[in-house]
Design a protein around this nucleic acid. Structure first.
Lengths: 339, 339
DNA sequence: ACTATCAATGAAATCGATTTCAATATCCTT
DNA sequence: AAGGATATTGAAATCGATTTCATTGATAGT
């Protein structure tokens, strides 16, 4: 009743442990009769196989480790749901580790997971450098990354098409008559930032507008960061009618600044963010934003990592890009909120 | 270089595996010299012990399983952070499972985790009945619950003081002159609901106000639920000046309804919610709410569960209650938002 | 100087499953 | 009816660590 082992089942069913194991793993080599004998014994003892013994022998844990920057960010939570759902469908469990914006913790978790506790690791928006990540993959581990694109041949990555995001936003703003569009970028070095800036420029060019480096300001990916960046830009030039914020948090910062400066949105200032987080629909006017298929971002990579674990991922293709969708709301178009 | 085992280390260091194991586990029974020999060998091989072998023998995983209703809910994410932080401090890892509001998944995860994959399990806001949970604990497993209070002698639980929440809110509203206060409750059967209703009554009594069952309406713990409940109440009586919503989501629903009915907040209707989620500060006016120490709720229970695993939890005390704090904002007091 | 005690180490059993390989039983084929 | 192929089963090795128990060598007590 307490903790029965395979040998107890074997004794009761009057067979060998090997046979019990075969039944447990649906081997075709057992008679219906023995199978039912064993199953009955299993039921009787309420037996469940010990995971450790099983894993030790089979060298598999059927578990994926997920190291995430901050589980409290809805953005990340959604990605995790995608990973989990797909992993579960393929009989994998996931072990979530929260690095809480600390690079040190991220490293610790990575080594921790490596001691064969998991079959593969997925990093969500890691802080580690490409080289550091690659070093882990070099040790023979399966690692995947979401939100970054490393050139490593053994590390599958899933990302959003950042260029498209930049182009789409600019195109939308230009179509609404804006000719001087500011860009509040995130960290300069972040791949997201670089690519979106590029898309931003492409969009300007396509709309026949000049690119003005004075209208680009960088800042932290946070409400405060957006607030500060907007203030700097406004104080310096003040000569723009629309802002493209690198994410919705920054856009919220812009709202705060505009409120304080008495700048009306969208009449005197159009605002567009990225991520389409829930809050964008609760402020007034609602914030236009670019929706990323977060769930898919996670599910896709889980798929690829599991493929790689099973050796089913063909060489060559390692970067997977998902599409995005601009959601136009009141912050960038008059009357868009009413419905 | 690839996967070295303890015996490889032993060979290089010219000792037995047993000695290596002793070094790994800081046994006092090794000379400084042997220790350094072994450590050097470990470094040389870049050896890390295989988790499965270790766990199999020591019958410990140093892992806590956490089954959570919905990882996307910021409320839950915060609790998890508390669990994780404390668990990490005591050298435990956590394995998070997302039951996604499905009782079936919750059960599956629970059995899954039970096969000795984890040393203990924490359920966050479980859907399972007390009896179902108790059944698992009966099998000799360590289980803890957050957000419910079961009478089971072996199941530590951490909860908020719901009575106090009810009393505090009513006291605040009564102090602001409200005499007819509606209560939008969650599921009637939920312990939270029952206790808050009780606190609500106590608060009324303390303020010398009568309890009117016509001013209590139940609904789902969601924005839509709050919306619907408020509408029913408003259509039926319409005779109240303040609403106490069981959580902030419901309060948001109340906002939506008030907007549609053209009821001004807080002038014609005061609103108070529970949880103090982020959005409450982004709507206008900001929503007064009761802040629960979520992080602490998690950390506390992690502590207790680990104590129980190690047999250090004395019998008797099993229910741990944490305090809450009413945050008054513009939705229930004029001018409270300005600063 | 001789034995009792203790510290340090190693050999081997062990955790609980899977898996290989050998053994048996059964069924065809000619 | 005999030999060979095939389907089931079991015995034993194995995964990689920990841990018990025995052994050795050293120290101390008388």
């Amino acid at each position: 009743m307490k903790n029965s082992k395979i040998i107890d089942v074997a004794r009761i069913a009057n067979v060998s442990p090997a046979t019990v194991s075969r039944v447990l793993n649906d081997s075709p080599l057992v008679t219906k009769e023995t199978q039912s004998k064993v199953l009955k014994a299993i039921q009787e003892l309420n037996y469940t196989p010990n995971a450790m013994g099983k894993q030790l022998r089979s060298r598999k844990t059927m578990t994926l480790g997920v190291v995430v920057l901050d589980i409290g960010v809805s953005y990340h939570a959604e990605i995790i749901k995608g990973i989990e759902q797909r992993a579960n469908a393929m009989n994998y469990k996931i072990l979530i580790c929260n690095s809480q914006n600390e690079k040190k913790k991220e490293l610790e978790y990575l080594s921790l997971l490596q001691n064969r506790t998991v079959d593969g690791i997925i990093l969500v928006a890691p802080m580690l450098s490409d080289e550091e990540i690659a070093a882990f993959a070099g040790e023979g581990y399966t690692i995947g990354v979401i939100g970054r694109r490393l050139g490593h041949p053994n590390i599958p990555c899933s990302t959003t098409d950042n260029w498209k995001i930049g182009r789409d936003v600019v195109t939308h703003l230009a179509a609404n008559g804006h000719r001087r569009i500011a860009f509040l970028n995130g960290y300069e070095e972040a791949l997201d930032s670089i690519e979106r800036l590029q898309g931003f420029k492409e969009g300007l060019a396509a709309a026949g507008l000049p690119f003005l480096s004075t209208l680009v300001e960088k800042g932290e990916f946070s409400e405060d960061g957006g607030y500060a960046a907007f203030c700097r830009l406004w104080e310096e030039s003040g000569d723009f009618t629309a802002v493209f914020a690198a994410n919705d948090e920054m856009a919220l910062g812009v709202y705060k600044a505009c409120f304080e400066y008495g700048i009306a949105i969208p009449d005197r200032m159009a605002v567009v963010g990225v991520d389409n987080i829930r809050i964008t629909n609760y402020v007034s006017p609602k914030i236009s934003s670019v929706e990323q298929p977060l769930y898919e971002l996670g599910a896709l990579l889980a798929d690829k990592v599991i493929d790689q674990i099973n050796g089913n991922l063909q060489q060559g293709q390692r970067n997977f890009m998902v599409d995005s969708r601009l959601v136009v709301k009141g912050s960038s178009q008059k009357g868009a909120d009413s419905k």
